[in-house]
Design a protein around this nucleic acid. Structure first.
Length: 595
RNA sequence: GCGCCUGUAGCUCAACGGAUAGAGCAAUUCACUUCUAAUGAAUAGGUUGUGGGUUCGAUUCCCGCCAGGCGCGCCA
């Protein structure tokens, strides 16, 4: 039984002594460490619950009730309890302070076995598909796709470290009517050989795509030509297929480079993910099922899904010319996933918030089809990157290319240090990418981000480089211990082997910053669980940044090597490093040992 | 017009219905022959858009209004 469960259990017994039964006890980590390691509002809750109130009528306030509970708790348990060092009633809250001895024991245990850093839930059989990144072939891989890539990757990592089986999928946009437009554009204004020779073929394709939309504004007939070419593609026309395949090859060259720079990987379909075209021959079957279940209604030669009581606008499945849409392919995709991974599979799509309505429609339809139960389909949304005065738009050509962004990030990282440093120039690319990732992950992802170079490549304070730097400091201390012969403890790269026995380590003698650091480290496991449950990597960022601040405060104030409490302090440094590394691992941010 | 999202310090953002609403950036001041100053300490900065309601307790939940963003059948 873990600590939380133990405390809850004892609390329940204490409440029973007062005749209070059936109250759901919540044990939380209070915001401030001065309020203890765990806290409960049980007294206030009991007081506010009418049928419980009658039993405690002799008590005037939640405050008194909390006091009574603590008295019982203390007389029954705490005296012989080495885990909880102190229980106190503050206001109506009951706060539990873990003993320094217990925290020290815990720290040693985690240092011995890093696996114990995060408690994995017992039932870890959940299987989850996380679909993210999903760039479009022949379109720029922009800062917008970067969001989905970075956030989706972090969400997948979060689920994995908390014991789920995760399938990482990339729903590449390699099918759809944009290929009709593009084919027309290549044939009319483009030159295949020149595209082939160009430094960045995708940029050439995008220019053609932009030209198509410019021309189409003057001459709406172009839209029809585009549709014709897409129809040809769907019908298997050889020329249409050939050009389509070319576009895919050109695009993949670029995608592969970016994924390897970002260290992002996918597990499905040999690491490529199942693109939309994979489902091209699987849509017929889905359309059949929709017809059989009498869900498909015709309107002006197109086929749509209508929802009960018009609670959602209709969703188009087949266009007037008989070709498919995004929705058709998504349905085929999810059908395929049901068959491949089993009907209890959970599917998360990390896609921009602008598609919220579409996903509502899709999920509702999939429910009508009887494919999924509530909670099995999730849309993790992220806000848009916007310019101050306009939207980013591929069609209009005002986008930030990821390539340029990474170069700028590297440039800024280079000029970061006040001192000259060789290692910075070696690490600039990784530091720049770390800054970029952190800035995408540190905020609640639903918000739009106004594009600003200063902001997204921030490298001071609450930033990726700050975290990397802090890690490097921990590493540096341990490296010095390792090379020093006087040191009492020896440090491995990862694990600190504390020679002393548990009894010798005196954590209750540590000073305030140190014991606070230790208690904050203890929270990590709960934080990871919370972040995973709410699919919010930013919770990890908040925690890590706080941890780093506590560590830097401690680091600035206390000498570690050669101090009286060297063993304890080294253990703290070591665990801080391990925790930061683990956390940044979830966020997929590299931790250079020297920066 | 309808739907969804957002509104917190000058700027960018935190805060599971809880305790004195916290950080970073910017500003002013202080601390570098260091176990890495890419850091730390201190000061200043708030009617949480607005008006009601629910609650022992509301930045958080509900309703109205204001402002911004996104979306609403042949794009994805």
């Amino acid at each position: 039984m873990d600590i939380k469960a133990q405390i809850k259990d004892k609390l329940r017994k204490a409440l029973l002594d007062l005749g209070i039964e059936g109250l759901e006890i919540e044990l939380e980590q209070p915001k401030q460490l001065s309020f203890g390691d765990y806290t409960t509002n049980a007294a206030m809750k009991a007081f506010a619950t009418p049928n419980l109130k009658s039993k405690i009528l002799n008590l005037k306030s939640p405050k008194e009730l909390a006091k009574r509970i603590v008295e019982i708790f203390n007389s029954k348990f705490v005296i012989h309890d080495s885990i909880v060092g102190k229980v106190e009633a503050v206001g109506g809250f009951i706060n539990f302070h873990l003993s320094a001895n217990y925290l020290g024991t815990w720290l040693e245990e985690v240092l011995r076995d890093n696996e114990k850093l995060v408690n994995k839930p017992k039932s870890s059989s959940n299987k989850i598909v996380v679909e993210y990144s999903s760039p479009n072939i022949a379109k720029p891989f922009t800062i917008g796709h970067l969001r989905s890539t970075i956030i989706g990757d972090a969400v997948a990592n979060l689920l994995e470290v908390t014991g789920r089986k995760v399938y990482r999928d990339n729903h590449i946009g390699d099918w759809g009517s944009q290929f009709g437009k593009l084919t027309y554009a290549i044939k009319t204004w483009g030159n295949e050989e020149e595209i082939e020779k160009a430094e960045n073929p995708v940029k050439e394709l995008v220019n053609l795509y932009i030209k198509f939309h410019e021309e189409a504004e003057k001459n709406p007939k172009l839209e029809d030509y585009g549709r014709e070419w897409f129809k040809k593609l769907e019908d298997g026309d050889l020329e249409a297929r050939r050009l389509w395949q070319k576009c895919i090859d050109w695009s993949w060259m670029e995608f592969n480079n970016l994924y390897s720079e970002l260290n992002v990987k996918f597990t499905e379909n040999n690491g490529r993910g199942y693109g939309e075209s994979f489902f091209e021959d699987k849509m017929k079957q889905v359309i059949e099922e929709l017809r059989e279940k009498d869900l498909l209604k015709e309107d002006q030669e197109a086929f749509l899904i209508y929802f009960k009581n018009d609670k959602l606008p209709p969703l188009m499945i087949l266009k007037t010319d008989g070709t498919t849409l995004y929705a058709t392919r998504d349905l085929a995709t999810d059908k395929f996933r049901l068959e491949k991974y089993g009907k209890d599979i959970k599917i998360i799509n990390e896609v921009g918030a602008e598609q919220s309505l579409y996903f509502q429609q899709l999920f509702e339809l999939e429910k009508m089809l009887g494919w999924f139960n509530a909670g099995q389909r999730v849309h993790v949304r992220h806000g848009l990157y916007r310019f101050k005065d306009q939207k980013m738009s591929t069609r209009k050509g005002n986008v930030i290319w990821l390539e340029d962004l990474l170069n700028e990030a590297e440039k800024r990282a280079l000029s970061l240090s006040k001192q000259d440093s060789i290692s910075i120039s070696q690490n600039a690319r990784r530091i720049g990418i770390g800054a970029l990732k952190w800035n995408d992950l540190k905020r609640n992802s639903i918000q739009d981000i106004i594009f600003d170079w200063e902001d997204i490549l921030n490298m001071q304070g609450d930033s990726g480089p700050y975290m990397q730097y802090t890690y490097a400091r921990t590493h540096s201390v341990l490296a010095k211990v390792k090379s020093s012969s006087n040191a009492k403890a020896t440090a491995d790269k990862e694990k600190l082997k504390v020679k002393s026995s548990i009894q010798d380590l005196k954590f209750d003698e540590l000073e305030k910053e140190e014991i606070h650091l230790l208690r904050y480290l203890y929270r990590y496991s709960d934080v990871v669980t919370q972040a995973a449950d709410s699919l919010s990597p930013n919770i990890i960022c908040n925690y890590l940044f706080n941890l780093a601040q506590r560590f830097n405060l401690f680091y600035q104030k206390h000498k570690v090597i050669g101090s009286d409490n060297e063993d304890q302090r080294l253990a703290l440094v070591s665990l801080t490093g391990i925790t930061i590394k683990h956390g940044l691992g979830i966020l997929n941010i590299e931790v250079p040992e020297k920066v």
